[in-house]
Simulated assay, not measured.
Amino acid sequence: MEFPVDVLEAIGHEELESSAHSYMSDLLYVDPDHSQYLSLTTGRKVRISLSNVGFVPLYGANLKHKVLALFAPEDQFTAVALLLDDKWYAVDDILRTADSSREGLIKVRSVGERIVLYVLNRIVYRTSEMSAGEVPFLCHGENDFAKILWKNGEAVGFYSVKPKGSLCSNFVSQCYLLPVMDSIFVRRGHRGQGHGLQMLEDFVDSFKDDELGMKFPLSPAMSQVCRHYLDRYPADVDLLWEVEGVGGPYQRTRVASKLSTHTLKVLNIQCLHLVTLWVFSIGIMSGLGKTTQKCKCAGYNPDTNHIKGPGVNKNIVANGCSNLQFIGITRLTANSDCFFVFWRHERNPHSIKHGMVLMLWLNLSHFSS
């Protein structure tokens, strides 16, 4: 079976729209008692009638190019199929290809690929896979730089870039001062497999500028991707910038600096029952009466947020420091395995102390910015 991205290689917008208008004209004369139905990949059948078909713009506010869409009766805002080259294709089929050479990240060029990009962004991402609180991506323009990630005959993600010198949509006459990755998406079933890092590496390889932008604000997932990238390529510490607007001198923040100042949080804390920290105290701890004393704090309990328990030095217990309340932990630099830990004594909660922690042995995958 051939899919739209395979058959629309040499077909333009005008041909698609012309055939769609002809189809709509014919639909006017269809007997309602003998309506056609489209079978979706789920097995469900959707009736095709004038009441649930309509034209949708491919490029957002640019209404020049449209495609005919079929909507489910209960949801008139989400398309379940598109009419392409005189044939209805369900959304799932639009994201497939029969071309085995279409694998990995491929630049969007043809109308068929633009339609795949539209479906991934407007239908898949916005309606079912956008996380709560996320700001949706803008619609891609007709000539936007974008690449689709193909995997085993299926489109599973994309990223897009505003090249240096291209017009910024938020301003009337200002252009981007550096290339800016303005959208990146991987389908839920394919996350956690390194595709985000793969796209970021491809972005760096595709644009040879000394500075590359990431659209503000960086999501937690994208921050983690950037952290992995900088761990792998420490020489690129000055390459990536979080960009607002067109990326002027006061509209950008170095990603490495931002990551290094973020407080690390524990992921999957319910599985992390005990973390042993060796704390080298700096300054005078309240109640210890000693300076620069090595203190073994055994057992960080995530349920009570305390460092306490067996293994605490007897001298410290005698001095009333058996209970230390954990406050936070911060990485020294973006690529460092050394951290500062902040704590305070329960009997003197206003006295915040800090110490350096060496976590060379700790699996850093438990932490994220």
Rank of each mutant, 00 (worst) to 15 (best):
G54V: 07
S39H: 04
S19L: 15
S51I: 13
R47H: 02
S19R: 11
L27G: 04
V7Q: 11
M1H: 00
E9S: 13
Y37C: 07
Y23F: 11
S35Q: 12
L38M: 05
R44F: 06
I48S: 02
F55C: 08
S49E: 10
T41R: 08
V5K: 09
S22I: 14
A10K: 08
G54H: 03
R47S: 14
G43C: 02
P4S: 07
I11K: 03
V46C: 06
N52M: 10
M1C: 14
L8M: 09
E17Y: 05
P4V: 05
F3M: 09
V7P: 12
A10P: 05
E15S: 06
E15K: 02
D6F: 01
H21E: 15
H21L: 15
S22T: 12
L28Q: 06
D6I: 02
M24E: 11
G54P: 03
T42D: 15
L16Y: 04
S35D: 13
V5E: 07
S49W: 00
G43W: 09
F3S: 05
E15W: 01
L28H: 00
G12M: 13
S19H: 03
S39E: 15
V30E: 08
A20Y: 01
P4Q: 08
I11C: 05
L28M: 13
V5C: 05
S22G: 15
M1K: 00
N52V: 09
E17D: 13
S39V: 12
I48Q: 08
L27I: 04
I11D: 05
E14M: 07
E17W: 03
S19N: 05
Y23I: 07
H21N: 10
V53N: 14
L38E: 12
E14D: 14
L40W: 06
L40D: 13
G54C: 11
Q36R: 11
L38A: 11
D33P: 00
H34N: 12
Y29N: 10
P32G: 01
T42H: 12
H34D: 12
H34L: 13
V5L: 08
S35V: 02
D33E: 14
A20G: 01
L27E: 11
G43M: 08
P32K: 02
P32M: 05
N52K: 03
L16Q: 08
Y37I: 02
S51H: 13
G43L: 04
L8G: 04
S25P: 00
N52C: 11
V53Y: 12
S25Y: 04
L38I: 04
F55S: 05
D31Q: 03
L40E: 15
F55T: 06
F3D: 04
S35L: 12
E15P: 00
Q36L: 07
S35E: 14
Y37M: 09
D31F: 01
S35A: 13
I11N: 02
F55Q: 07
V30W: 02
P32I: 05
L50A: 13
S18H: 04
V5N: 07
A20P: 07
T41V: 11
D31Y: 00
V53I: 12
L28P: 00
L40Y: 12
L40G: 11
D31N: 08
S22N: 05
S49H: 01
L38D: 09
V7Y: 13
Y29K: 10
I11Q: 02
L50K: 10
M24Q: 11
